[in-house]
Amino acid sequence: MTTAEDTVLAYWDACEARDWPRVAALVADEVVYHLPQTRERIRGRSAFLRFNQEYPGDWHVTVTRVAGAGPRAATWITCTVDGADQPAVSFFDLDDAGRIAGITEFWPEPYEPPAGREHLVERYAPATPG
Rank of each mutant, 00 (worst) to 15 (best):
L49S: 13
Y124A: 14
T3A: 03
A97K: 08
T104F: 02
F51N: 13
E118M: 05
T104L: 07
F48H: 12
V81A: 05
L49T: 05
H34R: 15
E109Y: 05
P108M: 01
T78Q: 13
A97S: 15
H119D: 06
V89D: 03
P113G: 08
C79N: 10
D96G: 12
A97T: 15
P110R: 10
S90L: 11
Y124K: 09
L35T: 01
G44T: 07
D93T: 15
E5P: 02
F51V: 02
D29T: 11
E54Y: 07
A25C: 03
Q86D: 10
F91P: 02
E5G: 03
T80C: 12
A14D: 10
W107N: 10
E40Y: 02
L9C: 03
D96Y: 00
Y111S: 14
T38H: 05
V66L: 02
R50E: 04
E105M: 10
Y55Q: 09
E112C: 00
T128F: 09
F51W: 13
P114C: 05
A25K: 04
V63K: 06
A25G: 14
R43A: 10
Q37G: 15
D96C: 01
G116Y: 09
W12D: 12
W59S: 04
A88N: 08
F51E: 04
A125E: 15
T64Y: 10
V31A: 00
A127L: 15
C15L: 15
Y111F: 11
T3H: 07
T38G: 06
I42Y: 05
E118A: 13
I77F: 02
H34N: 08
R117C: 08
R99L: 15
I103N: 01
D93H: 12
A97L: 11
W12A: 06
V27G: 00
A24N: 07
V61G: 04
T2V: 12
V31M: 04
R22C: 04
V32A: 04
G116M: 05
E40K: 11
G102R: 15
F92C: 08
P114T: 11
A74R: 03
P87W: 01
G68F: 02
M1S: 13
D6A: 14
I77T: 15
A47K: 09
L49R: 11
R50T: 14
C79V: 11
A73W: 00
A14N: 01
R39M: 04
Q86M: 05
I100V: 13
D29V: 11
A69G: 09
V31D: 00
G116P: 07
V31R: 02
G68Q: 06
N52D: 10
P113Q: 13
R72C: 12
T128M: 10
F106W: 14
A115L: 12
W12C: 14
L35D: 05
G116T: 12
R18S: 01
R99V: 12
R117G: 14
P71F: 04
G44L: 02
A84M: 03
D6K: 09
P113W: 04
F106A: 07
H34Y: 14
I100L: 06
E112Q: 01
L9P: 00
D82C: 09
V81C: 06
F48L: 06
A127C: 11
